[in-house]
Amino acid sequence: MGKYFLGVDIGSLTTKVVLLNEAGEIAARATGRSGYGGRDVARRLTAGLLDEKGLAGSDVAVTVATGYGRITYPADREMSEITCQARGIAHLFPGARTVIDIGGQDSKVIRLLPGGKVADFAMNDKCAAGTGRFLEVMAGALEVPLEEIGDLSLQAGNQCDISSFCTVFAESEVISHVSAGAPKADILAGVCNSVAARVASMSSRTGLEPEIVFTGGVARNSGVAASLAKQLGCGLKIPEDPVITAALGAALFARGLA
């Protein structure tokens, strides 16, 4: 019987796997681009982790899958990423009462009960505004690497206004700003601000209670983080690795199932 617990989070853009040991500590973790077949990516990442630790598949006692690809992944159980995210964050930040998660295609605000149970949540409409995908499209339009837009946006002098709620319209707004000669930093500040505004507005549907933890791939974007903190009027905690927290939650659930 294995002594390890695996959490697999197959997201729209990135796949993450977290392996816990018997004590519930992170033994290994890995991330990769989901691409066309997130399931295969998850298998490959898992195989790599086990290899690295000198473990065999049979050493994994329980696997819990989450994220978009969870349904078809051969796990012992699949759970929604909202429940897993809540669990992962509560583990890292026992005092957390609100989680703001901005991922590739989704953004979510989750209100937590002590212990990490979900009290309420809100998610974005079926539209890319307010998600990582929005940032990716705008980064593409401005020819700036996605990882750099946050820091660059913080150098803005005069933030441009991006008002459209439609990604396609917003892209045309960005192009208008470009043709009007606005500096990239100013446009990017507008872009980051627009994502933050969208999520800030969503957060009032669930209510905000400190501590607030900001997680998901976009939490690495310093521009969005700064704008979000400003709009919410309070500080945000960001996990050291904000990408893997839902996978961590899934692994914790796996350990609980054993």
């Binding site: 459209s164 709620f165 439609c166 045309s172 192009i175």
Partner: peptide, 9 residues
């Protein structure tokens, strides 16, 4: 609502 206005198109 100005958010639904697409200037260039």
């Amino acid at each position: 609502d100005p958010r639904a206005y697409a200037e260039e198109p």
